[in-house]
C-alpha cells in the first residue's frame, strides 16, 4: 500500500478547514452515538421503573440485578450463539461463494443474483417468508418432509429448534452480503503470485491458506466487524416470528432492551442492558483490532 505520503499540508491557508469539514458529521455522531452512549451509562446507575416513582440512584445495583437474573443469562447466551452461529458460517459461505465466482462463468449473473438478493430483502420480509416455510402442516419444510415420509416439524414452536431456525435464515440472508466484500478483496490478490505457486506445484488448499487468505487480511478485519455488528443489532425477525419465545429461546439482547424499555417501562434495567451491549461491541472491536488488524495499516 505504498501510496505517496498523505498530503500533510494544509494548502488552503485556513487551519480550521479540516474541523469545518468534519463539523456536520461530528455533530450528528455526537448527538446520536457519543452522547447517548455516555447518557445511557448514567441512566444505568438509577432505579427507574413503574414501581419506583421516578429515578433513584442505586449505584451498580442494576448490574448486579441483571447478572443475577437467569433469564438475562439466557438472553446473553442466545445472543452469543446467534452472533457466532450466524457470523462464522456466513463468512465461510461468503468466502466460498466469492472464490467460486471470482472468475467468469456462464451463469455468473444468475449466481450473483441468487446469492446477493437476500440482502435486498428486508429482514421482516425474509423472516415472514421463512416463517411460512417453517409453518407446520403446510409450510414448505413440512411438505418436503412429508414427501420423504417424515412427520411434522414445528421449528419456531420448539425451544430447541427455534434459535437454529432463525440462525439458518440469517445465514441465508447475510452470506451474499459478505460475498461481495470478499469479491472486492479478491481483486487485490495478485494472480501472478498464485500462478507462480501453482507452477511450483502447490495445491489449491495450500495456495488458499498461504496466499489468498493472508492477502485478504484487511478484508477479514472489515467483514468480521460487519458480520458482528449486523447480527448483534438484528432483532427485526423476532417482531414477525417468535417475539423472543418460546420461553425466551430466541430472546436476544437488543430485543430484551426493547421490551424492558417499551413494554415493561423499566428504564434503569434497559439502560444497564444497553451498557452491556455497547460494551460487548466495543470489546469485539478492540479484539478484532488487536488480533487481526496488526498487519493492516490504514494509517500513515
Amino acid at each position: 500500500m505504498a501510496t505517496r505520503a498523505t498530503g500533510s499540508r494544509n494548502r488552503y491557508g485556513n487551519p480550521f478547514l479540516p474541523y469545518f469539514l468534519l463539523a456536520p458529521s461530528l455533530a450528528v455522531l455526537a448527538l446520536f452515538t457519543f452522547w447517548p452512549a455516555i447518557h445511557v451509562g448514567w441512566l444505568s446507575l438509577y432505579r427507574n421503573n413503574l414501581a419506583s416513582n421516578g429515578p433513584h440512584f442505586t449505584g451498580l445495583t442494576n448490574f448486579a440485578t441483571i447478572l443475577d437474573d437467569p433469564q438475562f443469562r439466557t438472553v446473553l447466551f442466545n445472543t452469543l450463539e446467534f452472533v457466532v452461529g450466524t457470523a462464522v458460517p456466513s463468512m465461510a459461505l461468503g468466502l466460498t461463494m466469492a472464490l467460486l465466482l471470482n472468475r467468469q462463468r456462464i451463469l455468473s449473473p444468475l449466481y450473483r443474483v441468487a446469492f446477493f438478493y437476500p440482502t435486498l430483502v428486508p429482514m421482516v420480509g425474509a423472516a415472514t417468508a421463512w416463517a411460512f416455510i417453517y409453518t407446520p402442516g403446510y409450510g414448505l419444510m413440512d411438505r418436503v418432509l412429508h414427501l420423504w415420509g417424515g412427520g411434522s416439524l414445528n421449528p419456531l414452536g420448539d425451544p430447541k429448534l427455534a434459535l437454529p431456525a432463525l440462525i439458518a435464515l440469517s445465514i441465508w440472508r447475510m452470506s451474499g452480503y459478505l460475498m461481495i466484500f470478499f469479491l472486492a478483496g479478491l481483486q487485490s490478490v495478485p494472480t501472478d503470485v498464485q500462478e507462480a505457486a501453482r507452477v511450483d506445484g502447490a495445491a489449491y488448499p495450500t495456495i488458499l491458506r498461504r496466499i489468498i487468505i493472508p492477502l485478504l487480511g484487511p478484508t477479514f478485519v472489515f467483514v468480521v466487524i460487519i458480520a458482528i455488528v449486523n447480527t448483534a443489532q438484528l432483532v427485526d425477525q423476532l417482531y414477525v416470528t417468535t417475539g423472543g419465545g418460546p420461553n425466551n429461546a430466541t430472546n436476544l439482547l437488543l430485543w430484551d432492551i426493547y421490551q424492558q424499555t417499551f413494554s415493561f417501562q423499566d428504564q434503569g434495567i434497559a439502560a444497564t442492558m444497553t451498557v452491556v451491549l455497547v460494551g460487548a461491541l466495543l470489546i469485539c472491536a478492540a479484539l478484532n483490532a488487536f488480533l487481526l488488524d496488526r498487519r493492516t495499516h490504514y494509517d500513515d
Binding site: 448527538l31 446520536f32 452512549a37 447518557h39 466487524i225 455488528v229 443489532q233 439502560a271 444497553t274 461491541l281
Partner: peptide, 19 residues
C-alpha cells in the same frame, strides 16, 4: 468515526428515543 460502525443507532434505542 470508526467506533460508530461498531455502535449502531439501533443499539442505543433507549437514549436515542429520549433524545
Amino acid at each position: 468515526y470508526l467506533l460508530q460502525i461498531m455502535v449502531p443507532v439501533t443499539a442505543l434505542v433507549l437514549p436515542n428515543y429520549q433524545t
